[in-house]
């Protein structure tokens, strides 16, 4: 009997040691429990569709009949499709031209507004307004501004200066720059607000120390402001790239990808392929390519902006 008691005590000793070790494990389990809803949510609504899309990209699927495995046919079709490459190229042009310009303008505006000028809030609201305005409404306004006839606002202005009418959205050579201008105008507001918030978070002691060292305004801007904005610049760059490659509603309402596919973008092509041509397999292959492009661009952005996003 006593032996048994000793045995039990002996056997119960290791759990006493484990109790100390399980504190971390317990925390880990609670962590898992708290993370479970978000994990399940992401797995179901993001992970699963991504996996299904990748699978569907290797099939012929028209929504009405069951998918048929087609190997890499869809990817071969994409590789040989000039319109797809045109769309991809347009996205790159919009990103390479539009994003840096809009970031520079946003930064300049944010620095100006950070000086505490009079009418600050009115100006801030005005710049932010395009971001919260429905894209359909924006497109309608810009359709009028760009109207190729004599009643378009820009052509009226050109006419005032004795310049000839321009086709803008009706011209294959002018349509994409015209669209880029709208994306810049539309995107400045949010970027400016983020820059402004970040500027206001920079420790003023840094500037005071620089003043004591005799640094000029330009030196302070390039040696303190810009480096301190690096994390937020990375954030803006990545979200702008992702947003740029997801541009759809503006193209849909402004140009329908035309004229002659001169303003088509990947998301518009995905829409056309999926919902106008019912080639879901091909459309998901386009989506997979878009996903890969975005991942690669995000990695490159990370490298370009210094490898830190915190």
């Amino acid at each position: 009997m006593s032996t048994n008691t000793v045995d039990r005590q002996t056997q119960s000793a290791p759990p006493a040691r484990r109790r100390g070790a399980t504190l971390t494990q317990r925390q880990g389990r609670w962590g898992l429990l708290f993370a479970a809803p978000a994990t399940i949510h992401i797995a179901l609504w993001t992970g699963l569709p991504v996996v299904v899309s990748i699978i569907l990209s290797f099939t012929n699927y028209d929504m009405l009949n069951p998918p048929e495995f087609s190997g890499i046919d869809n990817y071969v079709t994409l590789a040989n499709d000039p319109v797809f490459w045109k769309a991809l190229g347009n996205n790159f042009i919009m990103a390479v031209v539009g994003i840096p310009i809009s970031m520079l303008i946003s930064l300049a505006l944010a620095v100006m507004l950070n000086q505490g000028l009079r009418g600050n809030s009115i100006f801030r609201t005005a710049v932010f307004l395009p971001h919260v305005t429905a894209t359909v409404a924006i497109a309608m306004i810009w359709l009028w501004i760009y109207s190729p006839g004599g009643n378009g606002l820009l052509n009226i202005v050109l006419g005032f200066f004795g310049l000839p009418n321009q086709a803008f959205l009706a011209s294959p050579s002018q349509a994409l720059p015209s669209v880029i201008l709208v994306t810049i105008w539309q995107g400045i507001g949010l970027k400016m607000m983020i820059y402004l918030a970040s500027l206001q978070g920079i420790d003023q002691q840094l500037y005071e120390a620089a003043d004591i060292d005799g640094a000029s305004a330009v030196q302070k801007f390039f040696r303190i402001t810009i480096p301190m904005l690096k994390p937020v610049t990375f954030f803006i760059l990545v979200t702008s790239i992702v947003g740029n490659f997801q541009t759809f509603d503006l193209i849909y309402n402004l140009t329908n990808g035309g004229p002659a596919n001169s303003t088509t973008v990947i998301t518009y092509q995905i829409y056309q392929t999926a919902f106008q041509q019912f080639r879901m397999g091909l459309a998901t292959a386009q989506s997979v390519v878009l996903l890969v492009v975005l991942v690669v661009l995000t990695i490159i952005s990370r490298k370009v902006t210094g490898g830190k996003d915190d």
């Binding site: 309608m140 359709l143 109207s147 190729p148 006839g149 009418n165 086709a167 004229p259």
Partner: peptide, 10 residues
């Protein structure tokens, strides 16, 4: 002329 056409709603 491809450039001469009515804009939406006009």
């Amino acid at each position: 002329n491809f450039d001469v056409k009515g804009a939406e709603g006009q």
